[in-house]
Write a protein that binds this DNA or RNA. Structure first.
Lengths: 211, 211, 211, 211
DNA sequence: TATGAATGAGGGTTCATTCAT
DNA sequence: TATGAATGAACCCTCATTCAT
């Protein structure tokens, strides 16, 4: 009852709960990434998170709920729009590189979660829609606006905007997939990807003087 | 029943067997694509193929064997190397477009099988290796050789060859994924993809006179 | 293929299936009666029926389905209406005794199934309605008609018909419950119950000359 | 906190404890009656009693202990013997009606607790014995004595005493069951039951002049 | 003493695979 | 060879109970 007995009794518990939830989610991501959603058992996750099976259900509704939780974490880490807009100010090519660097970093950090979620996204219609909207459509819209503006300004030549944007998105998604597949160059030279990607997308492969 | 009753008893039987195996494999691809490998049941497949559950095991070792079977069918449809080499003769840009058209067609036709196989490929280490080698590495090697040659010839400017090739591969893989995710432009404007892709990769987005 | 190879191939299988279903249902009734629906495990039932756990699900939808199955068997054994009507022809008291004898026999034979089902009937609203209608209401309606007719004829004195019928039904239901509770006299002197019951209901306890 | 601060610190606490125990027991009876013992969860009961899950275990040993507690409460409310003896003095028929009225009232008031306990009583051997002795045997013995005495006195005609008593008990138990089953006449005309019951048991259905 | 999160045993159910017919 | 019923291992989830705060 006395206020001095415990300084913010809830805050300590709260913190412990948050940490535990975090631990469970991370364990889930790791196990899902390693064995796939369906091969992964709740037991696996519980053991890795060092909790009892039942404890997981104090934090998540179901095994599927863990997947949703991971998706939410990914979305949280994204907050793309603002930053992307930011990154795309100024010189077109330069901002491309910056934006891609950002992106590559996120992909690298989120690789495990993406690997955990992506196979199931390809399979589950609900996840599919959610992932597509959060991860693809949101960026598509932005990129399309940006591309149109740049074309207007003459910084970029006229192209089929929606398809071109899809190509770029495809590359990003494809890079994730190829990394998951264990492609070696993509792992060892990951840092160089943004520059190569910008060159490809922006300048093309055609030699400079060859107009 | 007597051996003389039919001119070539085995060959007819053989054909029936082939057809049945084919039917089962197609059913498997359809069901896997629709529900995912783990949600799909042998019963589902048996019903769609109009055979009994047990019959499937006369043709395939296991449920997983069906997946392997589908992978094999994809590989069979590929026979890339030769054709790719063929396609890449002559003018660089032109052969790019031709090659991509080829590829887009294959992707479209093989979509169901790819959708059936891809999620599990991302999850199963063995499949991963097999898919990576058959579907990525084989082409990577070819493209790398080609790219180097073109650079040598001055038709293409000097770039980081392995990464550049990965970018192109990523795009192809990413296109598959985005189609699976149900992206609308990619479905409705699929025919235009090769040209846009070639423009992007070959010419870049930079306006012509802007060197 | 030859017709003489197996005489009615289906009928043998059919028979085996019937027998197996029967065995499972009996096992379920026994186990439910012994341990109660919720304490009973599918394993228990499977072992008693000498089948594998999964086999049960080839015959019944769920554990609850077994209960429904037992209820259906009880209803099947009943076919009350016709027989009751039959029994109640002729002298009132005599037909009472006959009808009750019939009933007591059925209760005795169906004891295990009733014991399996009754506790859950008291607890599950759906079962409650079904049991009430099949086991109580159907008979109530008949008895009410009969009673009214007998009153009309002056064979029975005017009484509150619905409630009186409920009393009789209560007694029947109560007898089942008391038997389940293990009451000794009801087990050892079961054969005398109909006569005593008829005396009680028909003549009352008042001494003969005491009007 | 100091012992002198409150005149009778324990007695107040005692009262609070009693009230809480009472609240828990009532909540348990309600939930058990509503969902059945096995479907009911400690959480359900805790919520209805407005206490934490763990608190319940400060008052009762286990979930089963709650059932025992309810049984004890029923027995407490009974105190039959004395009152029954009292009620059965004087005119036979009149005392029957009085006794039954008493009983009906108790059944009505105790309905929830009976509904909570009865299904499990039918299933659990220990409860079965306890319930049988407290609720059936105790009264049986009394009624048998009474019946024998009345027969001796010529107020009641000679009958099979144990079985006759069982019939009456069956009716009482059966009335409870039929009420649980939701029988409408028994609910709406409950007040008339004692009279009808007495008529049936005492006078029988035979018309007055029909000896 | 009250709390409510952690625990983990337990069980219904699914379904790939086998095998007698 | 085709059938489809039988098998039983495997797993998600529930929830009574415990116990640190």
């Amino acid at each position: 009852m006395s206020e001095s007995a415990q300084s913010r009794p809830t805050s300590r518990r709260e913190r412990l709960k948050r940490e535990r939830e975090e631990r469970i989610l991370e364990a889930a991501a790791t196990v899902f990434a390693r064995k796939g959603f369906h091969q992964a058992t709740i037991r696996d996750i519980a053991e890795l998170a060092d909790v009892a099976d039942g404890t997981i259900y104090n934090y998540f509704d179901s095994k599927f709920g863990l997947l949703i939780g991971i998706m939410a974490r990914i979305a949280e880490l994204e907050r793309l729009p603002g930053e992307l807009v930011q990154a795309l100010q100024g010189d077109a090519r330069e901002s491309f590189v910056t934006a891609f660097q950002e992106r590559m970093g996120r992909i690298e950090r989120g690789q495990e979660m993406l690997q955990a979620v992506l196979p199931e996204v390809l399979v589950n219609p609900d996840l599919r829609v959610q992932f597509y909207q959060q991860y693809v459509l949101r960026i598509s819209t932005l990129l399309e606006q940006y591309l149109r503006a740049q074309i207007e300004l003459g910084h970029i030549k006229p192209v089929n905007v929606p398809l071109t944007v899809r190509m770029v998105q495809s590359m990003l998604v494809g890079l994730i997939v190829l990394r998951i597949l264990g492609d070696d160059p993509l792992r060892s030279e990951w840092a160089d990807v943004p520059e190569v990607l910008a060159t490809l997308v922006f300048d093309g492969l055609k030699p400079s003087g060859m107009e």
